[in-house]
């Protein structure tokens, strides 16, 4: 019984972190109506920033959020402003510009290969750190402390983004743009600035996810790809554009991955995850927590 509870807890913790890695994807899609294929790479950049901030300062990883969040926000803001915005402008008449998707794919390749060029293919992980390898022990049961931190980071981040979108003036502007960008523009909302901000926020959450992962996972140039695929499944599962859906979708995946292997070979859990993904697409294409009708 113990090990099932242990698996459940690990699944919820790890799943919420998966949700956090997918949060940026869902935010950016919600506003820009574009699947950001570079999201995994943004997460990778976040992990490298966190890795260097932690290993150079030797501080508690979560203290480096002070650096990571603004750096990643600005990175995302200007990436959208400089690289993606011109494409949007060129395709003003199209509701879901395909070209932008292709551009984000280009950004993915450029970022991954640039990192490979600058930092090499090495796998890195922080060594001496207050969080690394810490476990809470309850008799036979072990719970990973860095994952527990990650769980709280995910909940707080998702909560704050939700609050920001609901309660602040900028948040309302973002939601208005997401609902109908032409109408929003007519109301005096600067559409492209809102895009920049949304992209910045999405990238910043990828940075936070990077900070939560660095204490127990490795950093390498293609690390984003591993989380990218999961991110897409989570976002579709939870409903594209839904913030709570991303976290819940993440937890579902985490639970399958964590509890599943207690009853079968770990390889099978992947099949279950993809099976569930297909099932959701068949039965409820808008996702478990998504909005049924598109605006």
């Amino acid at each position: 019984m113990n090990y099932i509870i242990e698996g459940l807890i690990n699944g919820i913790l790890m799943g919420s972190i998966y949700g956090l890695t997918a949060l940026g994807l869902t935010i950016i899609f919600g506003v820009l109506k574009v699947i950001n294929f570079a999201h995994g790479s943004l997460l990778m950049v976040g992990m490298y920033v966190a890795y260097w901030a932690v290993s150079l300062s030797g501080l508690h990883p979560y203290l480096t959020l002070v650096v990571v969040v603004p750096v990643m926000y600005l990175f995302g803001y200007y990436l959208q402003d400089i690289v993606i915005k011109p494409i949007f402008k060129a395709e003003r008449e199209v509701r879901e510009p395909i070209t932008v998707i292709i551009v984000t794919t280009g950004v993915w390749y450029i970022l991954d290969n640039l990192t490979l060029l600058v930092f090499g293919p090495q796998y890195r992980s922080i060594q001496d750190n207050p969080l690394r390898g810490k476990m809470l022990e309850f008799g036979e049961m072990l719970i990973s402390v860095p994952k527990l931190w990650g769980f709280f980071a995910a909940i707080i981040t998702a909560g704050s983004v939700y609050w920001f979108l609901q309660k602040t003036r900028t948040g309302r502007a973002i939601r208005a743009t997401s609902l109908d960008r032409d109408a929003a523009s007519l109301m005096g909302i600067k559409q492209y600035r809102v895009y920049n901000i949304a992209f910045g926020i999405g990238t910043a959450t990828a940075g936070i996810a990077g900070v939560t992962l660095v204490p127990f996972y490795n950093v390498f140039p293609t690390v984003g790809v591993l989380f990218d695929i999961k991110g897409f499944i989570i976002v579709v599962l939870g409903g594209l554009g839904s913030i709570g859906g991303a976290i819940l979708g993440g937890i579902i995946i985490g639970l399958i991955e964590s509890v599943g292997p207690q009853f079968m070979a770990a390889t099978w859990t992947e099949a279950i995850v993809y099976g569930l993904f297909l099932l959701v697409l068949f039965v409820k294409p808008s996702g478990l927590f998504g909005v049924r009708y598109d605006w």
């Binding site: 690990n10 790890m14 591993l226 964590s258 599943g260 770990a266 390889t267």
Partner: peptide
């Protein structure tokens, strides 16, 4: 006798099995 996917981002379930 446990195969696992090389792309796994969390191997604690496998490690729990080893421990058991």
């Amino acid at each position: 006798d446990e195969p696992y996917p090389s792309t796994a981002t969390d191997l604690s379930p496998v490690v729990q099995k080893i421990r058991r």
